[in-house]
Amino acid sequence: MKTKQVIKYLFKKQLPLIGVVYLTLIALIIILPFLLSVISGTLSSFSIVDQLRGGSVSAVFGFYIFVISTLSYENFKFLIQNGVSRSTFFEAQLSVNGLLILIGNTFNLLYGYLFLSPITDNAPFNLFTRVYDTYFSNPFVNGVLNFVMSALMLVVGSLLGMVIGNFLTLFSKVAQRLILIIAPITGGVVLLFIFKAMIDYRFRMSWVVNFAKLVLGYQSSGAYNPFALIISLIIFGAILIAITRLLFARKQLKRD
């Protein structure tokens, strides 16, 4: 098995992208608004703290891990040229994404707890701090649960990316473009239809709402139960891993 070598290759290739992502983030949430306020002459009301409060590093990192997970055909080409099997590629890609998530998630939470919270009067900086933070009163337990939950959300995001990316590589380039155009449109139309149905006929999708409440650990008063979401994420993740594995096994070189 060449898993170790392939992990090294993929990690070395994808790690520098994290730096690019965080630099882009700084540019987007600090430098760009600053320049805009200079141009528009509203510099006096510009507040770095407000900008930082508004920008979510977790969301940006989630986007990054999602995107690199979709791009797997490039790596497949290189690895199959070098005699690496699909199952080794699958295992290595999972490991590398796990490692990147560990790094990114640690950074995100340290940034949130040690930097953002003190300067924003403990304003919530991610989903956990928004709705689950008071379930336990012990800040250390909360920190650990926050870490687990955020990491799991990133894992699911990454797996979703892998499923979408690998599903698309089963098709030719033309078919991929068609899917990328048609899928969002059909999705949009279906959603519109559902909303319309809900409003017009006072159709209450009580099971959908109840299911969402169950997944999120909703409680009518006080903080939500974090374990409900954690378990849901684990189950969802396991299903996505199984699908990804199937999709990896079906990868082959395309006729271009």
Binding site: M1, K2, Q81, G83, V84, S85, R86, T88
Partner: peptide
């Protein structure tokens, strides 16, 4: 098929 140790013996 899907066998690292054999695929690694070839270069195309």
């Amino acid at each position: 098929a899907d066998n690292d140790s054999k695929l690694g013996l070839m270069y195309l």
